[in-house]
């Protein structure tokens, strides 16, 4: 996924001369995960450059650049640090278009590595998607594979919306996938049906998507797997259609259970399809407590066993 993202940024830097990439260590260093590796050498330090270490300043700078007619792509080094830029994002990135009734738009992207499973220090493994989704106004994208990562990033950078682009750290180098060399788009606001099935619907995204796929393959469950890809705005239609088809809905995500994406999905399924369900909606998610230190994370992150047990349970109902 690192290569796909790097390639997407490369193509967009080439396509749009108003687009810049900046953040902490993104220049010469190429980012701590190398997502921006080589881009400064190729496009110069006027287009790909380091910023001082200040997340609110980075988010605010991006907002100002977008107001000024540019298309900034700013990196927040880790999800836990992006909260220092929270005020800028919720108070301004999310609101500028509506505040000015469409007269000022903010074409910008804030990208950050998210979620755990790679034994990092505290504050390096959070799953912050709901914070950015709740208030409305920010498009929140989280790909689960290299193909989608590239296509979603390209599509998002051709839009005039503020986008929070969440990159699951664990998936940066988890598997290889052949993807087209040229620029292509994956639709924003549209979930992917990763595989079709009839027994149950599993709604997932991010780190959990490949894990769910593995578990389902091993168990030979006839599950329909939906990868949300865009968290906000949510693709309700795809979820409801699948729920009505299978009659069983399991939601799997890494972020904490309470008030999470699973709650949103469950509520929509309950509102629109409850009489067509054969079993209660179920959720597998991280516990409702802060992400732990690295030695404890194996007890925190949902694993294959939990997902497998949840599938067994929902099929028995």
């Amino acid at each position: 996924m690192v290569g796909a993202l790097n390639n997407a940024l490369d193509l967009m830097l080439k396509e749009n001369d108003k687009l810049v990439v900046f953040g902490e260590d993104v220049g010469k260093d190429g980012g701590v995960f190398r997502v921006t590796d080589g881009l400064q050498a190729k496009y110069g330090d006027g287009r790909v450059f380091d910023s001082p270490l200040a997340e609110s300043g980075i988010a605010g700078a991006a907002i100002g650049m977008a107001i000024g007619g540019m298309h900034p792509v700013a990196e927040m080094q880790f999800a836990g640090f992006m909260f220092l830029g929270f005020s800028q994002m919720v108070n301004h990135a999310a609101r500028y278009r509506t505040r000015t009734r469409g007269n000022v738009t903010l074409p910008l992207m804030i990208r950050t590595p998210v979620s755990g499973g790679v034994k990092t220090l505290e504050h390096h493994s959070e799953s912050p998607e709901i914070y950015w989704s709740h208030m409305g106004g920010i498009v929140v994208i989280e790909p689960s594979n290299p193909y989608d990562a590239k296509g979603l990033m390209i599509k998002a950078l051709r839009m005039t919306d503020p986008v929070v682009f969440l990159e699951p750290t664990k998936l940066y180098r988890l598997f290889k996938q052949n993807i087209p060399d040229e620029a292509y788009e994956v639709p924003v606001g549209k979930a992917a049906v990763m595989q079709e099935g009839t027994q149950l619907t599993i709604v997932t995204y991010g780190t959990m998507a490949p894990l769910v796929k593995d578990v389902v393959a091993k168990k030979k469950t006839d599950a329909e797997i939906i990868d949300l890809r865009t968290i906000n705005p949510i693709d309700e239609a795809t979820i409801i259609a699948s729920a009505k088809k299978t009659g069983r809905v399991l939601i799997v995500h890494e972020a904490s259970m309470s008030f999470g994406v699973g709650a949103e999905v469950a509520a929509r399924v309950a509102e629109k399809a409850i009489f067509e369900l054969d079993a209660p909606i179920m959720r597998v998610a991280g516990p409702s407590l802060p992400y732990p230190f690295p030695a404890y994370e194996k007890y925190w992150v949902p694993n294959a066993t939990r997902i497998s047990q949840a599938i067994d349970k929902i099929l028995q109902e």
Partner: peptide, 25 residues
């Protein structure tokens, strides 16, 4: 001009970013 901004000082990074855009463009 940009519109009124209420959260105190949050407009200063915007001003800086807009200044960046003037220079960049």
């Amino acid at each position: 001009g940009m519109p009124y901004i209420v959260p105190v000082a949050t407009q200063i990074p915007h001003a800086m970013g807009i200044a960046f855009a003037q220079k960049y463009l």
